[in-house]
Nucleic acid binder design. Structure first.
Lengths: 360, 360
DNA sequence: TTGAAAGCGCTAACAG
DNA sequence: CTGTTAGCGCTTTCAA
């Protein structure tokens, strides 16, 4: 038993297909016609097929969502935000997990293109080159949490000025400092929803400093250029590069990075983890090496997660509004205005629990 | 600059559109024609539009994925499994989050129907009535982790016998006991990928029993009929119903349930949490009430999560292969065989850490 | 092996 | 206000 089509409804109601189409999409029609059509449609259990409509309009109307890893609580919360907004707009969401791999990401972009999904929200894994095809194809893209940079240079630039407007309102301080190092990677100029990494990192470092820590390390993940750069600035002077280590998106690599760091530099007394998986790794590695937190090592982590409170000791964190980020990204990508939507920078919050102590 | 269509390719290659279609889908064509077409297609950067194909074939070929909550680590891992399989099959995945609410679920099913997504994987929130429309519309559906039951009766029945075949191979014991209580809710007879709740719960209870615990409580979530029933059976005799409490899918409700339980029944010495959010709530509530784990209270939790190890004390758990479940569910729903695919029951594993101790 | 042609279900001109 | 008609891009008979 196949579904009724618009033609069936038209025949059964004794009207033309155009009339049915109009009635169903709120066009003009005489009250009686409208009523009859509606009745017949309900009676036949008619559901307009998105297939026909999409082909006709040459677009699907759905939203693509590309994330590095749904296993990461941050991305899960972000996704929930996107889905909540999409649902209230009645839009379907096509999801893809990139594993933080630019190639997979490129493949998924291709898939979305093939499906004519013309709007996408992404926590990007690849650089500007990965995303250029999507942009050129006219996709409406909004980035969340990170920005793809032009390949080549290594020091990230602040996002385009439009992005910082909101922050300035939030903490009353321009986020773009007057002086900058020379070589800069330019981020893609595309609307984005970011957290205020700079002030988050600064807060964390200052907090640690206030506790007396001098050798504080940074544990970074992929796509986190802005955080690292902010870290270098926050510690001031000539940063001890050995105290800055990276991992890719996996748990194993995060653990390896943390463990390696703690072993090669037993003199460090505090570490800031650039994400919840890094924080997890730091706690695990510390425990394995018999480092007491916070006596031997203070740890502070980017992103608040439910288990931060269950951890021993409870983790001090820089909280980010992940769900809001997703919701707002969806709002932006759905906004079909004439002008490109502005970017948004959301504030972080220091949540003090028990994983940081004074340097002994 | 719009995308090239099949017609453009045909013209540029001096052949008919049918030929292009054939070449691109691996049909027969003379080597030289094939080569020419392929060259032109590449040169024009031609990508076949899924829109046209889908309309013609009256189906999208994508997979729908309906989950209660992406914020829950279990569902996140499940989703990653589904996405991994879908990606290797080149199929897009349309995702929806139901919040464990049957109404939202029904709405999302409607949306998938409208999109002509004819295959769906779900951790169902609603009952059989919620899913009947999807089934009647001819959707290929595979359930994961839970099964929708016929509304009315309250005691769940084991899933259809096909489902237990795999388990019997796995642990050599038939999962369907000879004797059963009288009133039963029938699960929908649809392929599913489930974990062996019965043996998992039994293992947990026996472990606790071995430690000397007599008053062990159960903290249940939504859609967990089979686990509760297994719990009742595992504790044997007339179960103390006051020791069995439920919450809906939210963290708040889980915490309230746990806290309430601990306060009304201070005599209990052990609790099994029916999911990771329940476990989280149990630990939090215990801590709040100054119950020492495991001295005053032993806790064991369904589902292993990364933070179980970071928790204090590290949580003893019944691990479930969430990611595998997703992957296998996707395999099932993609299997386009003549016969309906068989269900799968996957084993659990007791992982002993530090949250259970002897009764003092 | 190939091309012409007929739609898939829908919307948007355009006429009436 | 309403019906007729022309496609959207693709696959698939059916002849040639």
């Amino acid at each position: 038993m196949k579904r009724a089509t618009i033609k069936d409804v038209a025949e059964a109601a004794g009207v033309g297909v155009a009339t049915v189409s109009r009635v169903l999409s709120g066009g003009s029609a005489s009250p009686e016609t409208r009523e009859r059509v509606l009745a017949v449609a309900a009676q036949l259990d008619y559901r307009p097929s998105a297939l026909g409509r999409n082909l006709r309009q040459r677009r699907t109307g759905g939203i693509g969502l590309l994330l590095p890893d749904l296993t990461d609580s941050f991305h899960g919360r972000l996704a929930e935000g996107v889905l909540a907004c999409a649902r209230s707009a009645g839009e379907p969401v096509v999801i893809g997990s990139t594993g933080d791999d630019p190639e997979q990401e490129a493949e998924l972009i291709g898939m979305l293109l093939e499906q004519s999904v013309d709007r996408v929200i992404a926590v990007p894994a690849g650089d500007a080159d990965t995303w250029r095809p999507a942009l050129k194809a006219g996709m409406g893209v909004v980035f969340a949490d990170r920005l793809p940079y032009e390949p080549g240079a290594t020091e990230p630039e602040e996002p385009a000025t439009a992005a910082v407007d909101e922050l300035m309102l939030l903490d009353g301080v321009p986020a773009t400092p007057a002086s900058r190092p020379a070589v800069r990677a330019r981020p893609l100029d595309v609307p984005a929803v970011l957290t205020d990494d700079r002030s988050g990192v600064r807060t964390a470092v200052q907090y640690l400093r206030g506790l007396g820590h001098r050798r504080v390390a940074y544990l970074g993940g992929p796509g986190r250029e802005r955080r690292v750069e902010a870290f270098r600035q926050a510690v001031g002077g000539v940063p001890d590069e050995e105290l800055i280590v990276f991992s890719d998106g996996s748990r194993d690599s995060a653990y390896a990075a943390a463990s390696g760091l703690f072993q090669t530099r037993p003199d460090l007394t505090a570490v800031v983890a650039g994400g919840n998986m890094l924080g997890e790794a730091a706690v695990l590695a510390a425990r394995e090496l018999d480092l007491r937190v916070p006596r031997d090592l203070s740890v502070i982590m980017f992103d608040d997660v439910p288990w931060a409170e269950l951890c021993f000791p409870p983790l001090t964190v820089i909280a980010q509004p992940a769900r809001d980020m997703g919701y707002r990204a969806a709002e932006l990508v759905l906004r079909t205005g004439p002008r490109r939507p502005r970017s948004v920078l959301l504030p972080t919050e220091l949540v003090i629990r028990g994983s940081c102590g004074p340097r002994l």
